[in-house]
Design a protein around this nucleic acid. Structure first.
Lengths: 251, 251
DNA sequence: CCGATTTTGTTCTCACGTTCACAAACTCCT
DNA sequence: AGGAGTTTGTGAACGTGAGAACAAAATCGG
């Protein structure tokens, strides 16, 4: 049942530099699919099986995996555990990453309480907020600490990843402090465009934007009748009465 | 200061069908930038100004806007209010969209409490959960209702958009129910690949994936020393001791 | 009214991403 | 052992997106 691992002498000359960004974004999906298969007791899966589980095309999956190396066996498929390890290693989640969350409002609370964190290669080492009212509160099994402690925490815990769940206003300032303290990857939930120096990665999660994208397609579905209802060139004097669109996850 | 609006007789022959998906995804960002400029009392902005505010290249911004029509004035720039309305109309947020949230756990709570919803073209009409313990609880100014009421609510309020904030387990089932009730756009926070019939749009927000993408780049930054520390081909007998990677926003 | 200046809208080119299609490689059955 | 059947890995074709560059159109100063 377990396939030959085919560690052939002429090693696959692993992709020297640069897995395409689109592929990187899908690797975590494959990882999750593999974990699910593994939990179901499935030891081997074809690219077709995996692709179905991950919700992608099998050719795309094979090409994606080929950037990592040649980890399958022709005529058989992929060893689930083996491939899972390889992808985990490539992503970097075989080691643990320390994470700080800044801004313990509604969303910060939700993320802090999210139990499935530690088991996935990420460890929340601190919850920070600048509001003295919040500092000292306990959230789950952690206590909210003062944002002023940031530098110490980053230095002592080797934090590389920061999560910003503040309102839009202070987000850039928080970001600057994070970067100055040595954080080089930021996950931003605040509805602002953060500017960071080269070498720092920012990823954005924005609920409003997602909903607006859905709204766009939704509008298209309802036939063009809906479009015709809205005047293309409205009288300018009515413009200030518009609902305040835009914005996002602020306080 | 206000430019001529240039409603020339040969109308711009608005893009008949199909704004590129990449452009659609950026329109909400432009909308937000325009709203910010508008709030600052700025009446006119060049593509350069807008691009800076939105964090993109100005050529890209101009090309994106050109898909909507010719709403700028050469030598001058764009009228902020006018362009804001045009983008809002194109996205479809000049009208209100009714939204239901299913799964009132930590995250559902956070979204329900998010006050900046109603002002942005989205109206939460119901919070639903299947857990009898939760039904009847009040969250913000709303009350959690039984998931069984879904069909009635969708029918009476014309709900087109559903947000899934349940754990992974029930997500597909919830999704099926939503679709059957008539929801045609779904924003999914559960860490599963949802399968839906044609004509239904799904967008996914996944914290674990975002963090893992950051981790990948972070690993690359720390020089290749880090890569070398991890064996490329570990002994297979150690594999089951791996931390359980993958998964995501479950209970 | 005209030329200088500004800034848009668009064309062209290149890079990236997706999909097809098939040879290579492996297993299984006779 | 050999042929039939599977499934990977990848080359090639195609489509989409990004960025540079420039002509067209507008303003402004004289």
């Amino acid at each position: 049942m377990t396939p030959a691992r085919s560690r052939r002498p002429g090693a696959p000359t692993r992709t020297e530099r640069g897995i395409p960004e689109a592929t990187v974004a899908r690797l975590p999906v494959y990882l999750r699919a593999l974990t699910a298969l593994s939990d179901s007791g499935i030891a081997t899966a074809s690219s077709e099986d995996l692709a179905t589980a991950a919700g992608v095309n099998s050719a795309k999956l094979r090409k994606d995996l080929s950037y990592l190396g040649s980890y399958g066996t022709r005529g058989v498929g992929y060893d689930v555990e083996y491939l899972r390890y390889q992808i985990a290693r490539e992503i970097g989640v075989t080691q643990d990453w320390s994470v700080v969350i800044v801004g313990i409002g509604n969303l910060g609370h939700a993320l802090a309480n999210y139990s499935g964190f530690g088991t996935r290669g990420f460890r929340i080492v601190a919850l920070l907020d600048a509001d003295p009212e919040l500092v000292g509160d306990s959230v789950g099994d952690m206590v909210v600490r003062d944002f002023a402690e940031l530098e110490d925490i980053v230095a002592s815990d080797g934090v590389a990843i920061g999560v910003i769940t503040t309102p839009a206003g202070p987000a850039q300032e928080v970001c600057d402090r994070l970067v100055k303290a040595g954080v080089t990857s930021i996950l931003n939930f605040a509805p602002v465009v953060l500017s960071v120096p080269d070498g720092v990665d920012v990823r954005k999660v924005d609920l409003s934007i997602e909903l607006q994208i859905l709204a766009y397609h939704e509008q298209r579905k309802s036939g063009e009748a809906a479009l015709a209802e809205v005047p293309e060139l409205p009288a300018m004097n009515g413009l200030t009465d518009l609902p305040s669109v835009g914005g996002g996850f602020g306080a």
